[in-house]
Design a protein around this nucleic acid. Structure first.
Lengths: 399, 399
DNA sequence: GAATTTAATTTGCACCTCGAATTAAATAGC
DNA sequence: GCTATTTAATTCGAGGTGCAAATTAAATTC
């Protein structure tokens, strides 16, 4: 149980106000007061302190209501884009994408490195990541000292509180304190987070879940991941672990345990094509899914079969997740969506079949084919969220 | 985002202190201060108000530390058992159990009604429940006016916030506002809660999870239920729904979807024996599991087979739940545990096989064969928790 | 240019927690 | 049996927080 003191109280209300300003664009104090249910007095005090800290800006035009309303016009407030800068990154087996964003989450620069880092030693990966961050920052016309925080999103099981990577398909080692390693390399606070969590928060901030406070996201990539938004916050599991959906068991087959990853993981689908030389080359370069897409459109029977099986497995899994969490919306993301209609149709069919009657209609399936930038932007949102929450410097007593 | 004001702050700290007193038995103010990280000043103020409200009592003996410590002796504080009384109930298809407890959760009276209410019209069930509550209250030497709150735990999908029953195996109807119905009948605030949630909180208060703030419980009865404790609170799913594990899909069989309930539900196991007349009679009376136990000990092959299959299905499911929540402990409860070693062994084996290597050892399986009283006591804990949280009358300004 | 209307700030108050000082209640030593 | 010592608990004053009411600010209407 967390102990409550005036400081916590202020932090909660500050976050509430700041988040309202971020989400509702330019907004007046009165409207903030209505939305947050804080008195106008308190809103004035808090926005005053946010203005002092330079986190928000005033704008005197832009009251969109009917022209010609009487009375003193509302002063609109908005997040100050230049209050901070963060780096967000998506680190995958065959590519890395970096973005630099401002305090509002707008992308200032973007850098994609199509490098296979799969199973390289840690030091090599760390080198590449460090290099990518530095280059992306320079591209934005900034220096690393201008960057307040970095968030790296990567696949696997990650302990958020400590930044430990329990296991990840891109590392040979396990139990790595990657956050500490990168923090010292970059001399900037660095957060390590599951890529699925990153894009979950990304959708909450910028994407297809802006209107919701509860939601579930399923990421279908090399690894199958899960993100749960609960009460406008990421639900990070009991121990702060990220969820690794691929480890879920679908049943007992003749060869023993059948895990989801063996049916719907990227390698499970691509594996069917290993005999083809050109194809293997494409996979090695991280373009497997693009290639697959072409083959499927050319009616490759074996691949279509694999896609259908994968869709079925994922559809059943989603039904189970919905049974447990009953979210109003499920967002599906990831490279496997490129499998196209055979995959999506069998997924939808399996879901419809598997969803229990009592939950029929409570959850809406949404497919999202955002590019890797969006994942990186989500990681930036994770970094920004921690800045929004932190008390900042000038919160102290009035002068 | 909840808006924070001094009142909320006080409520949080009050709950924190009161809960510490409940859990750590007679405890001194200094120790409360250490545990809650509140100053002794604040603890004194809060305990003072709790004493004024009559929720706690002082005890001047009982400082258990070494005899002959110097200094002013600590005054021990404990929950006042007589500050309130609540009724907790477990409503199942073939029986109802009621308990009356005091403010500490001690059972004052207990009443078991072995009646089959399965699929009766609502009015009949409501009559029986009302009757049970009233009789149990009288047995405790009390009148309904002495009772502050009632909590009914029953199987199915229940929306906690509203008290709506979305679906339950014991009702023919769906979408019933049972909480409102019983509140007016008893003219006492009545909460309707999933039985699995009730016993989950029961274990947190009195049972095998007193030492944990995160935990998962799986109930194996007519219905298969799930309770998740997260940060000392019940996790009630995104929409406040309870979880119905039986609806989980295990895979696709030749006849279509295979749900957990078809492998491990009470009726799935008992169903194997429908030809036996005496057995059918036992089932009708709600003693199926007891009977099954006897048959298994007599080496009934068909039943042992069913038990093994059920254990396997449950073991896989638990592995999946652990993959999602990574709790330090999983508690298994419910009548199906009576299936004995064949069931438990195959469950353990399947779990060991299905748990992903990266999560091996993070979760401990605990089997609990508590009787129905304990479920009812858990329901009482749900009712008590809401009383503990509520601000009470005298919280107001100091006089 | 005065009246009206609405926005935002200032003022005064009640409440909360906390550190320091004070009071309370026991033991230890002579 | 008295005082010194030790520890527990309360009291006091300061600083922070939010809110309602009163006040000031900035526009439109007539």
């Amino acid at each position: 149980m967390k102990t409550a003191d005036p400081e916590l109280m202020r932090a909660m209300n500050r976050l509430s106000v700041l988040d309202t300003i971020r989400r509702r664009g330019p907004i007046s104090r009165v409207e903030i007061s209505e939305r947050t249910e804080l008195s106008t007095t308190t809103v004035s005090a808090i926005t005053g302190s946010l203005l002092d800290d330079g986190l928000i800006l005033t704008r005197h035009e832009g009251d969109i209501r009917n022209e010609a309303v009487r009375g003193r016009p509302r002063v609109m407030l908005e997040v100050n884009p230049d209050a901070a800068r963060v780096v967000g990154a998506k680190i995958a087996a065959s590519r890395m994408v970096f973005v630099v964003t401002n305090f509002r989450g707008d992308v200032l620069s973007q850098l994609a490195l199509p490098i296979r880092i799969d199973r390289q030693p840690i030091a090599v990966i760390a080198d590449l990541v460090e290099d990518g961050v530095r280059r992306c920052v320079v591209d934005a016309g900034l220096s690393l000292e201008d960057v307040d925080s970095v968030c790296l999103g990567l696949p696997g099981v990650i302990e958020h509180r400590t930044g430990h990577i329990r296991s990840s398909p891109i590392f040979r080692e396990i139990n790595i304190d990657f956050a500490a390693e990168m923090s010292t390399r970059l001399s900037t606070p660095t957060i390590v987070e599951s890529d699925a969590h990153a894009i979950t928060l990304g959708h909450h901030w910028f994407g297809k879940a802006r209107d919701l406070e509860d939601m579930v996201l399923i990421s279908l990539e090399q690894t199958l991941g899960l993100g749960v938004l609960h009460g406008n916050r990421l639900f990070r599991g009991a121990g702060g672990l990220s969820h690794n959906l691929g480890d879920l068991v679908l049943g007992m087959g003749p060869q023993g345990i059948v895990r989801l990853s063996s049916q719907a993981g990227e390698s499970a689908i691509l594996g069917e094509q290993q005999t083809d030389g050109r194809f293997a080359e494409a996979v090695r370069l991280g373009r497997g899914m693009t290639h697959v897409q072409a083959l499927i459109q050319a009616d490759d029977d074996r691949l279509i079969g694999a896609a259908v099986r994968a869709g079925e497995a994922v559809g059943l899994t989603i039904a189970n997740i919905v049974t447990l969490f009953a979210p109003p919306r499920v967002i599906l993301v990831g490279s496997s969506l490129a499998l196209g209609e055979p995959f999506l149709n069998s997924l939808r069919d399996a879901y419809a079949l598997a969803i229990p009657p009592s939950l029929k209609g409570v959850s809406e399936l949404v497919f999202d084919d955002s590019t890797d930038d969006f994942w990186a932007q989500g990681a930036a949102a994770v970094a920004l969220y921690e800045l929004y929450e932190s008390p900042w410097s000038t919160t102290g007593p009035a002068l």
